[in-house]
Design a binder for these strands. Structure first.
Length: 945
RNA sequence: GCCGGGAUGGCGGAAUUGGUAGACGCAACGGAUUCAAAACCCGUCGUCGCAAGACAUGAGAGUUCGAGUCUCUCUCCCGGCACCA
């Protein structure tokens, strides 16, 4: 081994400690400020590959920015409240506090091995009373502002952890932490009103330069939908059923109304109807016993009609039945919907099952815009009703299709109604176009559709209302077809399988699909029909007019629910609330903060909050507030702790305020936040919500906490599978650090793939070794030339170095450390071929290496006899000289035939002449004269023959 | 089902705005060195072909002098949401 990494790492760390290198002076004004944040870890007690990936790669950027003259704030701390500590207490009888602090101590030591340049002096621990005092203080502020609220709600309950979970912590109906199937419970809980900020959380995304997938995930989570409240009066009563719909324009097609089982009107309406009250009650109680998960798992539609009561469709005035069905959610919208089976899949499914009427009010519209039958924009559209005939052979499974002669159009027999009904018109067209005499009308096919096209033969624009109809031929008896018809098209028998591909226009295809696979709900926009005075209008365009017409109100709904923060757990931040003898909540006054977590508790899960077992807490409340006052026993969701930690970093030890206003003004918003994609919709949204709420309270200077956000990828096992103990593919980074050194592991992780996108990269067993080899080559290079007295830097060499410096800096800015390292490797490969390298170049090289391999670079810096630390140097100033020549690719017909190095100021004629003289070009031209020459100076000459 | 992102050698990946496809690295192969091996060093390395060259960025079409990159259709993979009216 060319170098002893253990020795080097030890020496470097001692040197950095002596120089106090990573203490950020937050007041330093002369440099540009850069707040680089990385998600702080939970102190699980063991540093795994994921931690290395998160912290050591981000550290590369922190170090590089410092070299580039920035005042970089790169803090660290621990998200130290949470379940594992408590589980350790339950399982092994350990003290959660001791367990946590022991783990923290261990992880601090492990983090130190990676050589990360964290400023430990600003460390925060969320479980420290000095921290959670301010979590409590901020909670109190939100409470005073009406943003923290106590109410009864159906909550997700994990029977194993014996606690309530936030919606976000339930994954596929299972507890995010322990995987147990989640139950539902009805409890009084604390909520933070994130819904009040739904719109602003959405708008705020617009200006953030985040990746689209992160923004989209948040948008989907917020789930904005615009629609209207419409009211359906109950026949013979004063009451009304209020529904929410995003498609109010389909109200004419609402043929029944559905209430969620938990809807307030269900029991009273059942009583009025009377006749099936028992059945309704039974249905409601059965669904109440199911979790939301169970309800949505079984997608089969169930429901009960409220017999004896009817609602009135406000558009048609018709009476429609009322159902109770669990496919309608009580927690969204108004808990009631108007059902439009023709235009909503769920309503369609329910209507089919219950044999309810399906009324078609939106006609699908096809406009032919391409091809020979495209609508002529300068001509008016002539309306006409028409029939499209699907005709089956009298004995075989074949269908009668039509192939036009003059145009590439293939479809079915189609013709205008001319005042007849569908059956008559169809029979007549079949007779005229095909000669078949005995077609039997079987049925209509689905609903009508609108098609706008240019009628090639009749030379007019048509707006046809197509009605599909199914006919069966009784026999093959056929008349002679008129000559006129024969010149227009041929008829053809096509087998069932081939019909779909035989037919050309999409609208005729749709009729075929409806015939062969059945009709469904049409959920798109189109032309309104069966909608009184709105008939013929575009559905999207008429939407709000219809809302006005039926006296509805335009509203916006959000999918996001308020943030449930109560946890029936011990190891969390106590909710700073006490109850007076009447049971009203009061915030614990600031002078009593921190509102300490009691220590005399029983951890055994009983279904009660552990804090309820503390005598000290009850005593404390009685002592401070008086007899009859009782404490809140729940603790806060740990996501509350982590929603503001980045503010505390700036002023982590302050006993008088949560953070320093002046420093926040200087350092916020955070320049770049690096983390895992698993936090996209929870932590990131909560932190943004907190920031906006605190901004409104004038407690913070900015509304959005993070300018840039980067989600890193995942490191997989060597088999490409997610690392897990059961698969036996877990890579222990410590082994590799021991064997190859921290620098090799760092550089390997940075090289494995782009750090700016959430991909997944398998850990290659040879990868770290190869990085070690590379570092040894750099070492040998420096050692070989470090005694050299030669100091003449050639032009070519200085250009190579400048190019590498620029590339490394640029790629690092984009978090593309893989290509940055590649650029460094290219430079080393080049330098190894040079017999003598000046010391100034070596020094620059070591500085360039230092963010990636901080320990080795420090050692090499000393080998060069330099003073101070390499990490206190400046990133070399880049001077890229302008060259007089440039490379130009020569192509013939777009294929590369040669490469020229031409003077930059060469004329086009000269450049082309030089290109044409190339032997390969001469060959490719076959003596022909180019018909076109594309010349882009500095890039390409393309000769087109 | 809907939304978002993606698909490039045996593998991880590269290719700032449409302009030399496969940078850099791994693995593999050949050589040199060695008593031998490891390490190191030199070379080969998309496919077909002796070569010239042809063909190649999930499949198919299109736009363009020129497409991994832009447009359309389809397939598959990853992520998010999902009975949210």
């Amino acid at each position: 081994m060319a170098y002893d990494h253990k020795e080097i790492e030890k020496k470097a760390k001692e040197k950095w400690a002596t120089l106090d290198l990573y203490h950020t002076d937050l007041l330093e004004e002369s440099k540009e400020l850069y707040y680089l944040l990385v998600e702080f870890p939970y102190p699980s007690g063991d540093l795994h590959v994921g931690h290395w990936y998160a912290f050591s790669v981000t550290d590369i950027y922190a170090r590089m920015l410092r070299l580039r003259g920035k005042n970089v704030f790169f803090p660290i701390g621990f998200d130290a409240f949470g379940l594992p500590a408590e589980n350790a207490a339950i399982k092994h009888g350990l003290d959660p506090l001791e367990w946590t602090y022991k783990n923290i101590a261990r992880m601090r030591a492990q983090l130190a091995t990676m050589g990360a340049s964290f400023d430990w002096s600003k460390e925060v621990l969320t479980c420290d009373p000095g921290y959670y005092q301010w979590t409590q203080w901020l909670f109190a502020k939100l409470f005073e502002q009406g943003l923290a609220e106590r109410r009864e709600a159906a909550v997700k309950w994990c029977p194993k952890d014996q606690t309530v979970l936030a919606n976000e912590q339930v994954i596929d109906g299972h507890c995010e932490r322990c995987g147990t199937v989640v139950e539902e419970k009805w409890l009084t809980q604390w909520f933070l009103k994130i819904t009040a900020y739904a719109e602003r959380l959405l708008i705020g995304l617009e200006t953030l330069p985040w990746r689209e997938e992160i923004k989209e995930a948040q948008r989907a989570w917020i789930g904005k939908s615009e629609g209207a409240y419409l009211e359906f009066p109950i026949a013979g009563r004063d009451e009304k059923i209020k529904v929410f719909t995003t498609r109010p324009e389909t109200v004419f097609g609402a043929t029944y109304v559905v209430l969620a089982p938990e809807h307030a009107l269900v029991s009273s309406l059942a009583l009025i109807g009377g006749s099936n009250e028992k059945k309704v009650e039974e249905y409601v109680s059965v669904t109440a016993g199911k979790t939301e998960r169970e309800r949505s798992e079984n997608r089969k539609k169930t429901g009960v009609r409220l017999v004896g009561v009817l609602a009135i469709n406000p558009a048609t005035g018709e009476e429609v039945p009322i159902y109770v069905a669990d496919y309608v959610l009580g927690s969204y919208g108004t808990g009631a919907v108007m059902a439009v089976p023709a235009h909503d899949e769920r309503d369609f499914e329910f209507a089919e099952k219950m044999h309810l009427p399906i009324k078609h009010v939106v006609q699908q519209l096809f406009v032919r815009t391409r091809g020979i039958d495209a609508v002529h924009l300068d001509m008016p559209l002539e309306k006409r009703a028409a029939v499209v005939c699907v005709i089956k052979h009298w004995s075989e499974d074949k269908f009668l299709c039509v192939r036009w002669k003059s145009v590439p159009w293939r479809g079915f027999v189609t013709g205008g109604l001319d005042g007849e009904d569908i059956e008559m018109a169809g029979k007549r067209e079949i007779q005229e176009e095909t000669g078949f005499r005995h077609a039997r009308f079987v049925r209509r096919i689905g609903d009508s559709i609108s098609v706008q096209f240019y009628h090639v033969n009749k030379k007019v624009n048509r707006w046809a209302e197509f009605q599909g109809a199914y006919f069966e031929l009784e026999d093959g008896e056929q008349d002679e077809v008129s000559k006129e018809e024969r010149t227009i098209h041929d008829i053809e028998w096509v087998s069932r399988e081939e019909v779909e591909s035989f037919i050309t226009p999409p609208d005729i295809k749709l009729i075929w699909q409806r015939y062969s696979t059945g009709n469904g709900a049409y959920t798109g926009p189109g032309i309104l029909m069966n909608s009184a005075e709105f008939n013929g209008r575009n559905s999207d365009e008429a939407r709000w007019d219809i809302v006005a017409h039926v006296g509805g109100r335009r509203v916006t709904q959000y999918r996001i629910r308020d943030w449930l923060v109560s946890r029936q757990r011990y190891w969390g931040c106590p909710i700073p609330i006490v109850y007076d003898p009447e049971g009203n909540p009061h915030v614990v006054p600031a002078e009593h903060l921190p509102w300490l977590l009691p220590t005399d508790v029983d951890f055994k899960p009983t279904g009660e909050a552990p804090l309820a077992s503390s005598i000290e807490l009850k005593e404390r409340v009685r002592r401070i507030f008086g007899d009859g006052w009782t404490p809140e026993y729940d603790t806060l969701d740990t996501f509350v702790d982590s929603s503001w930690y980045f503010l505390r970093y700036l002023d982590s030890k302050d006993a008088h305020k949560f953070s320093d206003a002046t420093l926040m003004k200087k350092w916020l918003p955070i320049s770049r936040y690096s983390g895992g994609s698993e936090h996209t919709t929870m932590h990131l949204l909560y932190a943004r919500f907190f920031m906006k709420a605190l901004y409104d309270l004038a407690l913070v200077p900015v509304e959005e906490p993070f300018i840039e956000r980067f989600n890193r990828g995942l490191i997989m096992g060597p088999d490409g599978q997610k690392m897990s103990k059961s698969k036996g593919n877990v890579v222990n980074p410590d082994e590799f650090v021991q064997k190859y050194g921290a620098d090799a592991v760092r550089i390997y992780l940075a090289f494995i793939g782009p750090y700016n996108e959430p991909g997944s990269y398998p850990w290659s067993l040879e990868g770290v070794a190869s990085m070690r080899k590379f570092l040894e080559r750099v070492t040998s290079l420096v050692e070989k030339h470090c005694k050299s007295t030669f100091d003449d830097v050639s032009h070519i060499l200085s250009q190579s170095i400048a190019r590498a410096q620029l590339k490394i800096a640029e790629d690092s800015d984009r978090f593309k450390f893989n290509t940055a390292i590649a650029a460094f490797m290219i430079l080393i490969n080049e330098l190894e071929k040079i017999p003598s390298i000046p010391k100034t170049v070596l020094a620059e090289l070591v500085i360039m290496l230092s963010p990636f391999a901080p320990h080795l670079a420090e050692d090499l810096w000393e080998k060069l006899g330099k003073e101070g630390s390499v990490h206190q140097q400046s990133w070399p100033v880049i001077v890229l000289a302008i060259t007089a020549e440039q490379e130009v690719v020569v192509q013939v017909n777009g294929k590369r035939r040669g490469l020229l190095t031409l003077a930059k100021n060469i004329s086009e004629a000269e450049a082309v002449a030089t290109a044409r003289a190339l032997p390969n070009v001469v060959n490719a031209l076959f003596g022909k004269e180019p018909v076109r020459i594309v010349y882009i100076p500095g890039k390409i000459i393309n000769l087109v023959i």
